[in-house]
């Protein structure tokens, strides 16, 4: 008895060491990633310093590298996608949790989640063959006609460009936003909803005053996760953004993104400083996504505290 219990106690210790090591390895991998990327990026940082982030020149032939067009393209397309998806994502979550019950809700929810299972290269193909021509022939002329006074909707209508990339990204992050928002709205306590209705609130008033405020922190979290996904998306964006390192105000114009420039140029980069510049962009991309996920964490915690709930 005594012996077996001491054996078990030793096993217990080993178990703790084991799981601690597994948890630790995740941190080590993340740290290693940052360190190795930094080492690889060092030559570019030495050559261009902080000017790397404000220079719009990207010329591999002359070994002149600036990251601004890629930062710009990534941020503009991601935020535009987020903006496009806010209403559709939250609206569909409200509908699926507050208005329909039973099989319609589960089938529709399943179909939305299915969007997440489509490989991004397929989205890219669809973007090239369907979305870009449609934008060029219908949407962009319409926008130019009615909102052409805004610099956003001026210039040649090419189809492929920032607008196309944003549109594809919006569809790609929709399942994330919609299904997470749906999950948080589904758990709004029934007594609160009944309490509002029992006071003579209409269905919409109940949603506006109870469901939305209650699920707001979770919805913000869902949007931020969607944004994170959009920032890092590579394949589909590369296929429709146009891949030109320009900064133009017009959404019709082609652009470039951090992820797509790495995917496009890494195999062809021969000079050391070119590789280093791409590594530095990779590092920045990593930091930007990490920053947004920290920001979303912080926002969720703060909103929860303000709503008087703890997580």
């Amino acid at each position: 008895m005594g012996k077996s219990s001491s054996v078990w106690r030793r096993a217990d210790t080993w178990f703790i060491v084991g799981v601690a090591a597994m948890a630790g390895s995740v941190l080590v991998v993340a740290a290693a990633l940052v360190v190795l990327l930094s080492i690889q990026a060092a030559p570019a940082f030495q050559a261009f310093g902080l000017g790397f982030f404000v220079s719009r020149m990207w010329d591999p032939v002359d070994n002149e590298f600036g990251a601004l067009p890629f930062l710009y393209g990534t941020l503009v397309t991601s935020f535009l996608a987020l903006f496009m998806v806010i209403f559709v994502g939250i609206g569909s979550a409200v509908f699926l949790t507050q208005y329909v019950k039973g099989w319609i809700a589960s089938v529709t929810g399943f179909l939305i989640e299915l969007l997440a299972a489509i490989p991004s290269v397929v989205y890219g193909l669809w973007g090239i063959f369907v979305v870009a021509p449609w934008l060029r022939s219908r949407v962009e002329p319409w926008l130019a006609e009615h909102f052409g006074f805004l610099p956003l909707f001026q210039g040649p209508q090419l189809g492929v460009g920032l607008l196309a990339a944003s549109f594809i990204l919006a569809i790609m992050i929709l399942p994330t936003v919609a299904s997470l928002s749906r999950d948080v709205m589904a758990v709004v306590p029934a007594p609160l909803k009944e309490g509002a209705l029992a006071l003579g609130a209409t269905h919409w008033e109940m949603i506006r005053t109870i469901v939305l405020p209650y699920s707001w922190p979770g919805v913000i979290g869902a949007l931020m996760l969607g944004l994170g996904r959009a920032l890092g998306e590579t394949m589909a964006v590369t296929m429709v953004i146009g891949n030109r390192p320009d900064i133009s105000v017009s959404l019709f114009a082609p652009g470039h993104s951090m992820a797509s420039v790495i995917a496009n140029e890494f195999t062809e980069a021969t000079s050391e400083v070119h590789i280093a510049a791409l590594s530095e962009i990779g590092l920045v991309l990593f930091l930007v996504t990490a920053l947004f996920s920290l920001l979303s964490r912080w926002m969720v915690v703060r909103l929860m505290a303000r709503a008087g709930r703890e997580e």
Binding site: P189, P191, L192, E194, G195, A196, A198, L199, G200, T209, I210, P213, Y214, A307, G308, R309
Partner: peptide, 14 residues
């Protein structure tokens, strides 16, 4: 509105 209700468990809004 005319027929109000108090529930089994207190359900104040957050």
């Amino acid at each position: 509105k005319r027929v109000g209700m108090v529930f089994q468990r207190p359900n104040p809004f957050p």
